[in-house]
Write a protein that binds this DNA or RNA. Structure first.
Lengths: 142, 142
DNA sequence: CACCCGCTTGCATGGGCATACATATATCAA
DNA sequence: TTGATATATGTATGCCCATGCAAGCGGGTG
């Protein structure tokens, strides 16, 4: 951090960043919910599952990926199961573990939602002028 | 958006950005709650009130500033009042309006919390390497 | 009067914390 | 080695809180 920047403006800028992220996330959530009946966390869980080997992940891994509490993930997976987008499966080598496995329906739902997600994201970011942050994010992730 | 960037990595970078913001916000919330009994929105409401003329704001203004629903603000102000950090006051020229006014106790609470907030913010950002985003945010806010 | 606007309130939802429970692993005694 | 006990780990559940939406209520405005 540069010396010339005082704390107050530091906090102020942070607030600005948080506000924009919040708006874009809210827009994403609104679209996902109304167009596909998916919460944002649910959509991201599906996306994570689709990318995982065998389309399955353990609760903990989902929790880490989604930055959610383990209990929240447990309930989110419950919702996914009610919608038949995933099924639970026991972990053969560790009977404490539970896999959440993407179903065909889940994969189809994801495929349908993905388009809207990405379109909405791009539009919202354009609307809020935050491509600049994104390029930093890309550099950050290498 | 550049042509060479495909949608998937676009979304991926966004996810990275959201994750980091979320972690820092969570850390801030944890510290504010444990050290001062304040939720993040509550802290930010106090800060907004302190900066406002006469240390008072109407519900709508708070809602805009905090990016919260009006109903959420109504209840948040209720919490502030229970903690005696603010008081409601009717708007003399428009009796529909309600001012939330910072109390002495509220001002004191804010002063105490501000230090921790800024210290925590700086530390968390350093820990997650997101000064780069902040500088973009500053440029964004001029 | 009819209509709008600002706030509040009922309700539903998603999330976190603490806890319960089952399984896994380590340690120790005989 | 075997068995017993303590501890750690992975999930699920109870409870509470903050938030959003929609409806209600009351004051303003034409």
């Amino acid at each position: 951090m540069k010396d010339g920047i005082d704390m107050a403006s530091y906090a102020q800028s942070w607030l600005g960043l948080v506000r924009v992220i919040h708006q874009v996330e809210a827009e994403l959530a609104r679209v996902m919910q109304s167009a596909h009946g998916l919460g944002l966390s649910e959509y991201r869980a599906l996306a994570a599952l689709a990318k995982a080997p065998d389309s399955e992940l353990r609760m903990q891994d989902l929790a880490t990926h989604l930055q959610l509490n383990q209990s929240s993930v447990s309930r989110m997976v419950e919702r996914l199961e009610r919608a038949e987008l995933s099924v639970r499966d026991v972990c053969p080598d560790d009977k404490r573990g539970v896999y959440t496995v993407l179903t065909q329906k889940g994969r189809a739902c994801l495929a349908a939602a993905e388009v809207d997600y990405e379109k909405t994201l791009e539009a919202a970011m354009k609307a809020h002028g935050c491509q600049a942050w994104l390029s930093v994010a890309m550099a950050h992730a290498q």
